[in-house]
C-alpha cells in the first residue's frame, strides 16, 4: 500500500519533468541554431532545397505550433529520420538500447558488489592502511577520464596481454534475439559459446564504466557507515552485546545504504554519460556509439533523439530511486 502510494506520488512529477525535457531539447534544436534548416540540410544544400525542407519540417510556422507538432510527433514515437542511416531515429535508438542497458546494468551491479563492502571496510577500519589505499582508489576513480582509462585497458589487456577482445560486443552473430541482452539470451538458449564471447567482450567496457561508479558508491557508503557508527543505536546495540558482525553488516549497513541508494541516480548519470565515450572507444553498438557517429556526421535529429531518450531514462531511474529510498527508509515522508 505504502509502496503504491509512493509510486503514485512520485509519478505525478514524471510528466511535468518529461515535458520540461521536451521543451529543453526543442529549445536546443529549434531556437538556438541561427537557421536550423540550413543546419539540417547540410553544407552543400541549395537555397531551393532549404526552402523545401523548411516547408517539409514546418519551420515556417510559428514556434508554438512547431513545439506542439514536435511534442505530438514525439509521443507518437516519431523522432525524425536519421540523415546518416536513413532510418527512423526511434527504430535506430530502440535497436541499440539493449546493448547500452546491458553494459550499464552489469556495470552498476559490479560497482555495487565491490563498492559497498569496500566502503564498509574503509569506514570500519578508518585511518588504517586499507582505508588509505581505498581512498587513493576512490580519488583516482573520480579523477581519471573514462575515455583515457578505456584506451589504457585496451592497450594493456587487449593489445599487450591479449586477454580480452579489443572491441565489439560479440564474435559472430550473437545468440537468438529474445531480450537483446546477449548474456541473458545466450543463457536462455544455452548457447555457451556466445555467452563466453559476450562475457569477454563485456569485461573491459564494464571495468572502465564501473571504476568511477564504484568509487562513488564506496565514498557514500563509507560516509554513511561513519555516520551510523557514531550513532546512539550502535552504542545501544554494542551495550546490549549484539555480535559485532551483525552490528556492522546488518544494522549499520542497512542505514548507510539509504544514503548510497539516493546516489544511484547520480551513478546512473555517470554511467550513461560514460557510455558515450566508452562505447566509442570499444566500438560497442549501443546508444553512445550511435550518438558519437551522429556527432561525426552532424546528424542533428539523431542527437536530439538520443538526448531525449537518455534524459527520459535518467528521469525514470531517479523516479525509481525515489521510490526505493522511500521503501528503504520508514521515516521518509510519503
Amino acid at each position: 500500500m505504502r509502496i503504491l502510494y509512493l509510486m503514485f506520488n512520485r509519478l505525478i512529477w514524471f510528466f511535468p519533468t518529461v515535458f520540461g525535457l521536451l521543451l529543453l531539447v526543442f529549445t536546443i534544436s529549434h531556437i538556438i541554431p541561427a537557421d536550423p534548416v540550413a543546419f539540417l540540410a547540410g553544407d552543400n544544400a541549395t537555397n531551393e532545397q532549404i526552402a523545401d525542407l523548411r516547408a517539409q519540417y514546418g519551420f515556417d510556422r510559428p514556434l508554438y505550433i512547431q513545439f506542439i507538432n514536435y511534442v505530438m510527433g514525439t509521443f507518437q514515437g516519431d523522432l525524425g529520420i536519421s540523415l546518416y542511416t536513413q532510418r527512423p531515429i526511434s527504430d535506430d535508438l530502440l535497436g541499440r538500447l539493449p546493448a547500452t542497458l546491458e553494459l550499464t546494468f552489469v556495470s552498476v551491479l559490479i560497482s555495487a558488489i565491490l563498492g559497498v563492502p569496500l566502503g564498509v571496510i574503509a569506514a570500519v577500519y578508518r585511518n588504517s592502511v586499507a582505508d588509505h589505499i581505498l581512498r587513493l582508489i576512490t580519488v583516482s576513480g573520480l579523477a581519471i577520464a573514462s575515455f583515457w582509462l578505456a584506451i589504457l585497458f585496451q592497450l594493456f589487456f587487449a593489445m599487450e596481454l591479449q586477454w580480452t577482445p579489443l572491441q565489439g560486443r560479440i564474435d559472430g552473430w550473437g545468440p537468438d534475439h529474445i531480450t537483446g541482452f546477449f548474456l541473458l539470451d545466450s543463457l536462455l538458449v544455452g548457447d555457451w559459446e556466445s555467452f563466453g564471447s559476450a562475457f569477454s567482450h563485456l569485461v573491459l567496457p564494464v571495468a572502465t564504466l564501473a571504476f568511477p561508479a564504484m568509487a562513488t558508491i564506496m565514498r557514500f557508503t563509507r560516509a554513511g557507515v561513519l555516520d551510523a557508527i557514531n550513532s546512539n543505536y550502535v552504542l545501544y546495540e554494542q551495550a546490549m552485546g549484539f555480535p559485532e558482525r551483525i552490528i556492522i553488516w546488518k544494522y549499520i549497513l542497512r542505514n548507510a545504504l539509504i544514503g548510497t541508494v539516493t546516489q544511484i541516480g547520480l551513478i546512473f548519470g555517470l554511467l550513461l554519460a560514460g557510455t558515450v565515450v566508452v562505447e566509442a572507444v570499444f566500438d560497442w553498438p549501443g546508444l553512445g556509439l550511435y550518438a558519437v557517429q551522429s556527432i561525426m556526421n552532424s546528424d542533428y535529429n539523431a542527437i536530439m533523439g538520443f538526448t531525449l531518450i537518455t534524459g527520459t531514462m535518467f528521469i525514470l531511474i531517479n523516479l525509481l530511486v525515489d521510490v526505493l529510498q522511500g521503501v528503504m527508509d520508514p521515516r521518509s515522508e510519503l
Binding site: 511535468p16 519533468t17 520540461g20 525535457l21 521543451l23 529543453l24 531539447v25 536546443i28 534544436s29 538556438i32 541554431p33 543546419f39 548519470g269 555517470l270 550513461l272 554519460a273 558515450v276 550518438a291 556527432i295 552532424s298 542533428y300 542527437i303 536530439m304 538520443f306 538526448t307 537518455t310 534524459g311 535518467f314 528521469i315 531517479n318
Partner: peptide, 23 residues
C-alpha cells in the same frame, strides 16, 4: 527550481553534447 530540476534531469555531458553540437 523546476527549471533547474529539468536541467539536472539530463546527464550533464549529454546535454553539453547536444548544445555543443548545435553550436
Amino acid at each position: 527550481m523546476r527549471v533547474s530540476d529539468i536541467f539536472l534531469a539530463v546527464p550533464q555531458i549529454i546535454l553539453a553534447i547536444a548544445i555543443a553540437q548545435t553550436l
